[in-house]
Design a protein around this nucleic acid. Structure first.
Lengths: 217, 217
DNA sequence: AACGCTAGAGAACGCTCGTTCTCCGCTCCT
DNA sequence: AGGAGCGGAGAACGAGCGTTCTCTAGCGTT
Protein backbone atom coordinates (compact mmCIF):
# COMPACT_ATOMS: atom_id res chain seq x y z
CA UNK A 1 0.00 0.00 0.00
CA UNK A 2 2.88 2.36 0.62
CA UNK A 3 3.94 1.44 -2.89
CA UNK A 4 0.57 2.45 -4.35
CA UNK A 5 0.29 5.82 -2.60
CA UNK A 6 3.02 7.49 -4.63
CA UNK A 7 2.45 10.95 -5.93
CA UNK A 8 3.49 11.95 -9.45
CA UNK A 9 7.11 13.06 -9.46
CA UNK A 10 8.08 10.56 -6.80
CA UNK A 11 10.14 8.51 -9.21
CA UNK A 12 12.14 11.52 -10.39
CA UNK A 13 12.78 12.63 -6.80
CA UNK A 14 13.75 9.10 -5.79
CA UNK A 15 16.22 8.96 -8.65
CA UNK A 16 17.72 12.33 -7.70
CA UNK A 17 18.09 11.24 -4.08
CA UNK A 18 19.72 8.00 -5.08
CA UNK A 19 22.09 9.81 -7.42
CA UNK A 20 23.14 12.20 -4.66
CA UNK A 21 23.46 9.37 -2.15
CA UNK A 22 25.63 7.41 -4.56
CA UNK A 23 27.90 10.38 -5.13
CA UNK A 24 28.26 11.28 -1.44
CA UNK A 25 28.55 7.72 -0.10
CA UNK A 26 31.16 6.88 -2.69
CA UNK A 27 33.19 10.03 -2.13
CA UNK A 28 33.09 10.17 1.69
CA UNK A 29 32.03 6.75 2.93
CA UNK A 30 28.56 5.71 4.03
CA UNK A 31 28.84 6.44 7.73
CA UNK A 32 30.31 9.87 7.03
CA UNK A 33 27.17 11.02 5.17
CA UNK A 34 24.12 11.63 7.34
CA UNK A 35 20.53 11.98 6.26
CA UNK A 36 20.82 15.73 6.76
CA UNK A 37 23.66 15.91 4.26
CA UNK A 38 21.39 14.12 1.81
CA UNK A 39 18.65 16.66 2.50
CA UNK A 40 21.07 19.57 2.01
CA UNK A 41 22.38 18.12 -1.25
CA UNK A 42 19.01 17.34 -2.79
CA UNK A 43 16.71 19.95 -1.22
CA UNK A 44 14.30 17.14 -0.33
CA UNK A 45 13.01 17.46 3.21
CA UNK A 46 13.67 14.79 5.79
CA UNK A 47 9.99 13.93 5.97
CA UNK A 48 9.83 13.39 2.23
CA UNK A 49 13.04 11.34 2.34
CA UNK A 50 11.44 9.04 4.89
CA UNK A 51 8.29 8.80 2.84
CA UNK A 52 10.33 7.71 -0.17
CA UNK A 53 12.65 5.33 1.72
CA UNK A 54 11.95 3.50 4.97
CA UNK A 55 15.47 3.92 6.35
CA UNK A 56 19.01 4.93 5.54
CA UNK A 57 20.02 1.32 5.12
CA UNK A 58 17.42 0.87 2.39
CA UNK A 59 18.96 3.83 0.54
CA UNK A 60 22.36 2.21 0.87
CA UNK A 61 20.98 -1.03 -0.52
CA UNK A 62 19.38 0.71 -3.48
CA UNK A 63 22.58 2.61 -4.19
CA UNK A 64 24.51 -0.65 -4.23
CA UNK A 65 21.96 -2.25 -6.52
CA UNK A 66 22.34 0.72 -8.85
CA UNK A 67 26.12 0.35 -8.81
CA UNK A 68 25.65 -3.33 -9.57
CA UNK A 69 23.64 -2.53 -12.70
CA UNK A 70 26.16 0.13 -13.71
CA UNK A 71 29.04 -2.28 -13.31
CA UNK A 72 27.25 -4.92 -15.37
CA UNK A 73 26.64 -2.38 -18.12
CA UNK A 74 30.31 -1.39 -18.16
CA UNK A 75 31.36 -5.03 -18.36
CA UNK A 76 28.89 -5.80 -21.14
CA UNK A 77 30.02 -2.74 -23.06
CA UNK A 78 33.62 -3.88 -22.72
CA UNK A 79 33.04 -7.46 -23.84
CA UNK A 80 30.74 -6.57 -26.73
CA UNK A 81 33.23 -6.70 -29.59
CA UNK A 82 36.20 -8.77 -30.62
CA UNK A 83 37.28 -12.36 -30.20
CA UNK A 84 36.98 -14.29 -26.99
CA UNK A 85 40.51 -13.45 -25.84
CA UNK A 86 40.19 -9.78 -26.70
CA UNK A 87 36.86 -9.51 -24.88
CA UNK A 88 38.49 -10.74 -21.68
CA UNK A 89 41.36 -8.30 -22.01
CA UNK A 90 38.97 -5.44 -22.75
CA UNK A 91 37.69 -5.65 -19.17
CA UNK A 92 41.03 -4.33 -17.93
CA UNK A 93 40.92 -1.48 -20.43
CA UNK A 94 37.52 -0.62 -19.03
CA UNK A 95 39.09 -0.61 -15.56
CA UNK A 96 41.85 1.73 -16.77
CA UNK A 97 39.28 4.23 -18.07
CA UNK A 98 37.43 4.03 -14.77
CA UNK A 99 40.55 4.46 -12.62
CA UNK A 100 41.49 7.57 -14.59
CA UNK A 101 38.31 9.39 -13.63
CA UNK A 102 39.19 12.02 -11.06
CA UNK A 103 36.48 10.97 -8.63
CA UNK A 104 37.69 7.36 -8.59
CA UNK A 105 37.93 6.09 -5.04
CA UNK A 106 38.00 2.30 -5.45
CA UNK A 107 35.24 -0.26 -5.68
CA UNK A 108 32.21 0.83 -3.68
CA UNK A 109 31.38 -2.76 -2.84
CA UNK A 110 34.82 -3.40 -1.37
CA UNK A 111 34.69 -0.09 0.52
CA UNK A 112 31.21 -0.79 1.86
CA UNK A 113 32.21 -4.28 2.90
CA UNK A 114 35.17 -2.96 4.84
CA UNK A 115 33.02 -0.30 6.46
CA UNK A 116 29.80 -2.19 7.20
CA UNK A 117 30.34 -5.84 6.29
CA UNK A 118 30.84 -6.85 9.91
CA UNK A 119 27.88 -4.81 11.15
CA UNK A 120 25.21 -5.23 8.49
CA UNK A 121 24.60 -8.76 7.19
CA UNK A 122 22.34 -7.48 4.42
CA UNK A 123 25.02 -5.25 2.96
CA UNK A 124 27.57 -8.03 3.30
CA UNK A 125 25.26 -10.29 1.35
CA UNK A 126 24.74 -7.71 -1.42
CA UNK A 127 28.50 -7.35 -1.80
CA UNK A 128 28.97 -11.10 -1.86
CA UNK A 129 26.27 -11.54 -4.49
CA UNK A 130 27.76 -8.78 -6.65
CA UNK A 131 31.21 -10.32 -6.66
CA UNK A 132 29.81 -13.81 -7.21
CA UNK A 133 27.87 -12.64 -10.23
CA UNK A 134 30.92 -10.99 -11.75
CA UNK A 135 32.85 -14.21 -11.30
CA UNK A 136 30.02 -16.14 -12.93
CA UNK A 137 30.04 -13.80 -15.93
CA UNK A 138 33.82 -14.14 -16.17
CA UNK A 139 33.44 -17.91 -16.14
CA UNK A 140 31.07 -17.74 -19.11
CA UNK A 141 33.54 -15.63 -21.04
CA UNK A 142 36.45 -17.87 -20.13
CA UNK A 143 34.60 -20.99 -21.19
CA UNK A 144 33.63 -19.31 -24.47
CA UNK A 145 37.32 -18.59 -24.99
CA UNK A 146 38.01 -22.30 -24.59
CA UNK A 147 39.91 -22.16 -21.31
CA UNK A 148 39.16 -23.94 -18.08
CA UNK A 149 37.01 -22.16 -15.51
CA UNK A 150 39.85 -21.79 -13.02
CA UNK A 151 41.15 -19.01 -15.26
CA UNK A 152 38.05 -17.01 -14.38
CA UNK A 153 38.92 -17.01 -10.68
CA UNK A 154 42.42 -15.83 -11.49
CA UNK A 155 41.16 -13.03 -13.72
CA UNK A 156 38.68 -11.98 -11.06
CA UNK A 157 41.44 -11.78 -8.46
CA UNK A 158 43.44 -9.60 -10.84
CA UNK A 159 40.46 -7.28 -11.30
CA UNK A 160 39.83 -7.01 -7.54
CA UNK A 161 43.49 -6.40 -6.83
CA UNK A 162 43.71 -3.76 -9.52
CA UNK A 163 40.76 -1.90 -8.02
CA UNK A 164 42.14 -1.79 -4.48
CA UNK A 165 45.68 -1.07 -5.63
CA UNK A 166 44.57 1.78 -7.87
CA UNK A 167 42.39 3.23 -5.12
CA UNK A 168 45.12 3.19 -2.50
CA UNK A 169 48.01 4.20 -4.73
CA UNK A 170 45.95 6.86 -6.45
CA UNK A 171 47.12 5.92 -9.92
CA UNK A 172 45.68 3.83 -12.73
CA UNK A 173 48.88 1.86 -13.32
CA UNK A 174 47.34 -1.21 -11.73
CA UNK A 175 44.89 -1.57 -14.61
CA UNK A 176 47.67 -1.86 -17.17
CA UNK A 177 49.67 -4.21 -14.96
CA UNK A 178 46.62 -6.37 -14.39
CA UNK A 179 45.96 -6.37 -18.12
CA UNK A 180 49.49 -7.53 -18.86
CA UNK A 181 49.18 -10.28 -16.25
CA UNK A 182 45.79 -11.30 -17.63
CA UNK A 183 47.25 -11.67 -21.11
CA UNK A 184 49.92 -14.01 -19.80
CA UNK A 185 47.39 -16.06 -17.84
CA UNK A 186 44.94 -16.25 -20.74
CA UNK A 187 47.61 -17.33 -23.18
CA UNK A 188 48.89 -19.96 -20.79
CA UNK A 189 45.38 -21.29 -20.19
CA UNK A 190 44.55 -21.37 -23.90
CA UNK A 191 47.83 -23.13 -24.65
CA UNK A 192 47.09 -25.82 -22.07
CA UNK A 193 43.32 -25.87 -21.46
CA UNK A 194 43.32 -28.18 -18.43
CA UNK A 195 46.47 -27.14 -16.66
CA UNK A 196 44.63 -26.08 -13.55
CA UNK A 197 44.47 -29.60 -12.20
CA UNK A 198 48.25 -29.68 -12.29
CA UNK A 199 48.46 -26.16 -10.90
CA UNK A 200 46.06 -26.35 -8.01
CA UNK A 201 47.34 -29.78 -7.04
CA UNK A 202 50.75 -30.02 -5.33
CA UNK A 203 53.10 -28.10 -7.56
CA UNK A 204 54.58 -30.12 -10.40
CA UNK A 205 57.48 -27.86 -11.32
CA UNK A 206 58.75 -27.17 -7.82
CA UNK A 207 57.97 -30.25 -5.75
CA UNK A 208 57.02 -30.03 -2.09
CA UNK A 209 56.64 -26.31 -1.62
CA UNK A 210 53.24 -26.15 0.07
CA UNK A 211 53.47 -28.26 3.18
CA UNK A 212 57.10 -28.01 4.32
CA UNK A 213 57.20 -24.24 3.95
CA UNK A 214 56.75 -23.82 7.63
CA UNK A 215 55.66 -25.22 10.93
CA UNK A 216 56.00 -21.55 11.82
CA UNK A 217 53.17 -19.13 12.65
CA UNK B 1 57.30 15.58 28.92
CA UNK B 2 54.19 13.47 28.67
CA UNK B 3 56.50 10.74 27.45
CA UNK B 4 58.72 11.03 30.52
CA UNK B 5 55.96 10.94 33.14
CA UNK B 6 55.06 7.33 32.54
CA UNK B 7 54.48 5.14 35.54
CA UNK B 8 55.79 1.59 35.74
CA UNK B 9 53.32 -0.77 34.10
CA UNK B 10 52.34 1.74 31.46
CA UNK B 11 53.96 -0.21 28.69
CA UNK B 12 52.16 -3.42 29.60
CA UNK B 13 48.81 -1.62 29.83
CA UNK B 14 49.46 0.15 26.53
CA UNK B 15 50.19 -3.18 24.89
CA UNK B 16 47.01 -4.72 26.30
CA UNK B 17 44.93 -1.78 25.09
CA UNK B 18 46.46 -1.96 21.63
CA UNK B 19 45.87 -5.70 21.46
CA UNK B 20 42.20 -5.27 22.39
CA UNK B 21 41.83 -2.36 19.97
CA UNK B 22 43.36 -4.41 17.18
CA UNK B 23 41.01 -7.29 17.85
CA UNK B 24 37.85 -5.16 18.07
CA UNK B 25 38.66 -2.79 15.22
CA UNK B 26 39.50 -5.69 12.95
CA UNK B 27 36.41 -7.70 13.84
CA UNK B 28 33.81 -4.90 13.84
CA UNK B 29 35.30 -1.95 12.00
CA UNK B 30 36.90 1.12 13.54
CA UNK B 31 33.87 3.38 13.71
CA UNK B 32 31.79 0.61 15.26
CA UNK B 33 34.08 0.39 18.32
CA UNK B 34 33.87 3.29 20.74
CA UNK B 35 36.29 4.23 23.47
CA UNK B 36 33.85 2.83 26.02
CA UNK B 37 33.95 -0.56 24.34
CA UNK B 38 37.73 -0.41 24.68
CA UNK B 39 37.35 0.43 28.36
CA UNK B 40 34.91 -2.44 28.89
CA UNK B 41 37.18 -4.89 27.08
CA UNK B 42 40.39 -3.94 28.88
CA UNK B 43 39.16 -2.72 32.27
CA UNK B 44 41.30 0.40 31.80
CA UNK B 45 39.42 3.55 32.74
CA UNK B 46 38.72 6.25 30.20
CA UNK B 47 40.97 8.68 32.03
CA UNK B 48 43.85 6.24 31.94
CA UNK B 49 43.18 5.53 28.27
CA UNK B 50 43.49 9.24 27.54
CA UNK B 51 46.65 9.48 29.60
CA UNK B 52 48.18 6.66 27.55
CA UNK B 53 46.95 7.87 24.15
CA UNK B 54 46.09 11.41 23.10
CA UNK B 55 43.10 10.41 20.97
CA UNK B 56 41.28 7.54 19.37
CA UNK B 57 42.92 8.27 16.04
CA UNK B 58 46.34 7.81 17.60
CA UNK B 59 45.25 4.37 18.82
CA UNK B 60 44.10 3.54 15.31
CA UNK B 61 47.45 4.64 13.94
CA UNK B 62 49.38 2.54 16.44
CA UNK B 63 47.20 -0.47 15.69
CA UNK B 64 47.92 -0.08 12.00
CA UNK B 65 51.63 0.25 12.66
CA UNK B 66 51.45 -2.96 14.68
CA UNK B 67 49.67 -4.72 11.85
CA UNK B 68 52.35 -3.43 9.50
CA UNK B 69 55.08 -5.02 11.60
CA UNK B 70 53.08 -8.24 11.91
CA UNK B 71 52.59 -8.40 8.14
CA UNK B 72 56.28 -7.81 7.53
CA UNK B 73 57.13 -10.63 9.94
CA UNK B 74 54.75 -12.99 8.17
CA UNK B 75 56.25 -12.09 4.80
CA UNK B 76 59.82 -12.51 6.03
CA UNK B 77 58.91 -15.85 7.60
CA UNK B 78 57.44 -16.97 4.30
CA UNK B 79 60.39 -15.93 2.12
CA UNK B 80 63.06 -17.25 4.46
CA UNK B 81 63.78 -20.57 2.79
CA UNK B 82 64.03 -21.95 -0.70
CA UNK B 83 65.08 -20.62 -4.06
CA UNK B 84 64.05 -17.26 -5.42
CA UNK B 85 61.01 -18.64 -7.26
CA UNK B 86 59.87 -20.72 -4.32
CA UNK B 87 60.19 -17.76 -1.95
CA UNK B 88 57.80 -15.72 -4.09
CA UNK B 89 55.28 -18.54 -4.25
CA UNK B 90 55.51 -19.09 -0.49
CA UNK B 91 53.86 -15.71 0.07
CA UNK B 92 50.60 -17.11 -1.28
CA UNK B 93 50.87 -20.13 0.98
CA UNK B 94 51.21 -17.71 3.88
CA UNK B 95 48.05 -16.00 2.65
CA UNK B 96 46.23 -19.34 2.55
CA UNK B 97 47.13 -20.05 6.18
CA UNK B 98 45.95 -16.59 7.16
CA UNK B 99 42.65 -16.82 5.24
CA UNK B 100 41.88 -20.11 6.98
CA UNK B 101 41.92 -18.55 10.43
CA UNK B 102 38.34 -18.27 11.63
CA UNK B 103 38.63 -14.61 12.60
CA UNK B 104 39.87 -13.65 9.13
CA UNK B 105 38.01 -10.61 7.86
CA UNK B 106 40.23 -9.30 5.07
CA UNK B 107 43.14 -6.91 5.09
CA UNK B 108 42.78 -4.33 7.84
CA UNK B 109 44.52 -1.72 5.72
CA UNK B 110 42.08 -2.16 2.86
CA UNK B 111 39.14 -2.14 5.27
CA UNK B 112 40.40 0.96 7.06
CA UNK B 113 41.01 2.72 3.77
CA UNK B 114 37.46 2.03 2.64
CA UNK B 115 36.10 3.18 5.96
CA UNK B 116 38.24 6.22 6.73
CA UNK B 117 40.49 6.85 3.74
CA UNK B 118 38.30 9.69 2.47
CA UNK B 119 37.93 11.26 5.92
CA UNK B 120 41.33 10.88 7.55
CA UNK B 121 44.37 11.79 5.44
CA UNK B 122 46.74 10.38 8.06
CA UNK B 123 45.18 6.94 7.93
CA UNK B 124 45.08 7.07 4.13
CA UNK B 125 48.79 7.83 4.15
CA UNK B 126 49.58 4.95 6.53
CA UNK B 127 47.71 2.55 4.25
CA UNK B 128 49.47 3.90 1.19
CA UNK B 129 52.87 3.56 2.83
CA UNK B 130 52.12 0.01 3.94
CA UNK B 131 51.15 -1.13 0.47
CA UNK B 132 54.08 0.71 -1.11
CA UNK B 133 56.52 -0.99 1.21
CA UNK B 134 55.11 -4.42 0.42
CA UNK B 135 55.48 -3.68 -3.28
CA UNK B 136 59.07 -2.56 -2.69
CA UNK B 137 59.86 -5.79 -0.85
CA UNK B 138 58.26 -7.79 -3.65
CA UNK B 139 60.41 -5.91 -6.16
CA UNK B 140 63.55 -6.92 -4.28
CA UNK B 141 62.48 -10.56 -4.33
CA UNK B 142 61.54 -10.42 -8.00
CA UNK B 143 64.85 -8.88 -8.97
CA UNK B 144 66.70 -11.51 -6.95
CA UNK B 145 64.77 -14.11 -8.90
CA UNK B 146 66.06 -12.54 -12.10
CA UNK B 147 62.79 -11.20 -13.44
CA UNK B 148 61.90 -7.67 -14.39
CA UNK B 149 60.35 -5.45 -11.73
CA UNK B 150 57.00 -5.27 -13.51
CA UNK B 151 56.40 -8.80 -12.25
CA UNK B 152 56.36 -7.41 -8.72
CA UNK B 153 53.40 -5.16 -9.47
CA UNK B 154 51.51 -8.09 -10.96
CA UNK B 155 52.22 -10.29 -7.94
CA UNK B 156 51.15 -7.51 -5.61
CA UNK B 157 47.85 -7.14 -7.46
CA UNK B 158 47.30 -10.87 -7.10
CA UNK B 159 47.93 -10.67 -3.36
CA UNK B 160 45.57 -7.71 -2.91
CA UNK B 161 42.88 -9.35 -4.99
CA UNK B 162 43.22 -12.60 -3.08
CA UNK B 163 42.74 -10.78 0.23
CA UNK B 164 39.57 -8.95 -0.81
CA UNK B 165 38.16 -11.95 -2.62
CA UNK B 166 38.76 -14.25 0.32
CA UNK B 167 37.27 -11.75 2.76
CA UNK B 168 34.08 -11.23 0.75
CA UNK B 169 33.58 -14.81 -0.38
CA UNK B 170 34.44 -16.16 3.05
CA UNK B 171 36.68 -18.90 1.73
CA UNK B 172 40.42 -19.30 1.31
CA UNK B 173 40.20 -20.53 -2.28
CA UNK B 174 41.51 -17.23 -3.57
CA UNK B 175 44.92 -17.89 -2.04
CA UNK B 176 45.36 -21.11 -4.03
CA UNK B 177 44.07 -19.51 -7.20
CA UNK B 178 46.40 -16.54 -6.75
CA UNK B 179 49.25 -18.94 -6.12
CA UNK B 180 48.55 -20.81 -9.35
CA UNK B 181 48.36 -17.53 -11.26
CA UNK B 182 51.58 -16.33 -9.65
CA UNK B 183 53.39 -19.47 -10.76
CA UNK B 184 52.34 -18.89 -14.36
CA UNK B 185 53.39 -15.22 -14.22
CA UNK B 186 56.72 -15.98 -12.55
CA UNK B 187 57.56 -18.70 -15.05
CA UNK B 188 56.64 -16.45 -17.96
CA UNK B 189 58.74 -13.61 -16.57
CA UNK B 190 61.74 -15.83 -15.91
CA UNK B 191 61.47 -17.31 -19.41
CA UNK B 192 61.49 -13.85 -20.99
CA UNK B 193 63.08 -11.41 -18.49
CA UNK B 194 62.22 -8.16 -20.30
CA UNK B 195 58.83 -8.92 -21.76
CA UNK B 196 57.16 -6.14 -19.84
CA UNK B 197 58.15 -3.48 -22.35
CA UNK B 198 56.25 -5.44 -24.99
CA UNK B 199 53.35 -6.05 -22.61
CA UNK B 200 52.77 -2.60 -21.20
CA UNK B 201 53.32 -0.95 -24.58
CA UNK B 202 50.53 -1.20 -27.18
CA UNK B 203 49.78 -4.89 -27.34
CA UNK B 204 51.95 -6.80 -29.74
CA UNK B 205 49.93 -9.98 -30.04
CA UNK B 206 46.50 -8.39 -30.49
CA UNK B 207 47.13 -5.10 -32.29
CA UNK B 208 45.07 -2.01 -31.57
CA UNK B 209 42.98 -3.23 -28.70
CA UNK B 210 43.46 -0.44 -26.17
CA UNK B 211 42.34 2.74 -27.86
CA UNK B 212 39.62 1.64 -30.29
CA UNK B 213 37.82 -0.51 -27.74
CA UNK B 214 35.31 2.18 -27.15
CA UNK B 215 34.32 5.74 -27.68
CA UNK B 216 31.54 4.53 -25.40
CA UNK B 217 31.03 5.48 -21.76
C1' DA C 1 48.14 11.70 63.00
C1' DA C 2 47.03 15.05 59.69
C1' DC C 3 47.44 16.94 55.24
C1' DG C 4 48.55 17.67 50.20
C1' DC C 5 48.75 15.15 46.09
C1' DT C 6 47.97 11.74 42.69
C1' DA C 7 45.23 8.44 40.12
C1' DG C 8 40.90 5.95 39.29
C1' DA C 9 36.06 5.57 38.14
C1' DG C 10 32.44 7.07 35.81
C1' DA C 11 29.17 11.01 35.35
C1' DA C 12 28.83 14.78 32.33
C1' DC C 13 29.45 17.67 28.11
C1' DG C 14 28.88 18.96 23.46
C1' DC C 15 28.09 17.11 19.26
C1' DT C 16 26.10 14.25 15.57
C1' DC C 17 23.44 10.57 14.16
C1' DG C 18 18.87 8.28 12.42
C1' DT C 19 14.27 8.95 13.01
C1' DT C 20 9.84 11.21 14.35
C1' DC C 21 6.69 15.02 15.50
C1' DT C 22 4.68 19.46 15.35
C1' DC C 23 3.24 23.25 13.25
C1' DC C 24 2.00 25.94 9.25
C1' DG C 25 0.48 27.01 4.66
C1' DC C 26 -1.61 25.35 0.62
C1' DT C 27 -5.20 23.08 -2.04
C1' DC C 28 -9.36 21.03 -3.33
C1' DC C 29 -14.25 20.10 -2.74
C1' DT C 30 -19.00 21.80 -1.80
C1' DA D 1 -15.76 31.46 -0.06
C1' DG D 2 -14.62 28.61 3.59
C1' DG D 3 -13.11 24.74 6.05
C1' DA D 4 -11.06 20.00 6.16
C1' DG D 5 -7.22 17.52 4.99
C1' DC D 6 -2.69 16.88 3.25
C1' DG D 7 2.26 17.70 2.58
C1' DG D 8 6.57 20.37 3.56
C1' DA D 9 10.06 22.30 6.55
C1' DG D 10 12.77 21.80 10.18
C1' DA D 11 12.75 21.54 15.33
C1' DA D 12 12.93 17.90 18.56
C1' DC D 13 14.11 13.34 20.54
C1' DG D 14 16.80 9.61 22.27
C1' DA D 15 20.95 7.33 21.69
C1' DG D 16 25.84 7.10 21.01
C1' DC D 17 30.11 9.19 19.98
C1' DG D 18 34.97 11.26 21.58
C1' DT D 19 36.60 13.78 25.16
C1' DT D 20 36.85 16.10 29.71
C1' DC D 21 35.74 16.99 34.58
C1' DT D 22 34.53 16.05 39.22
C1' DC D 23 34.68 13.56 43.16
C1' DT D 24 36.74 10.34 46.12
C1' DA D 25 39.90 6.98 48.06
C1' DG D 26 44.51 5.98 49.01
C1' DC D 27 49.29 7.21 49.58
C1' DG D 28 53.72 9.47 51.21
C1' DT D 29 55.64 12.97 53.88
C1' DT D 30 56.60 15.75 58.35
Amino acid sequence: MSEANRRPGDEAVRAAVLAAADRLYYALGIQAVGMDALRAETGVSLKRLYSLFPSKESIVEEVLHGRHRLWNDLVEDAVRAGGARQRLVAIYDMLARWFDQDDFRGCMFINSFGELGATSPRIAEIVRAHKAQFQARLTELVVEAGASSSLAAQLAILAEGAQTTAAIAGTSDAARQARAAAEVLIDAALRDPDAESARTAPASTAPASTAPTGTAS
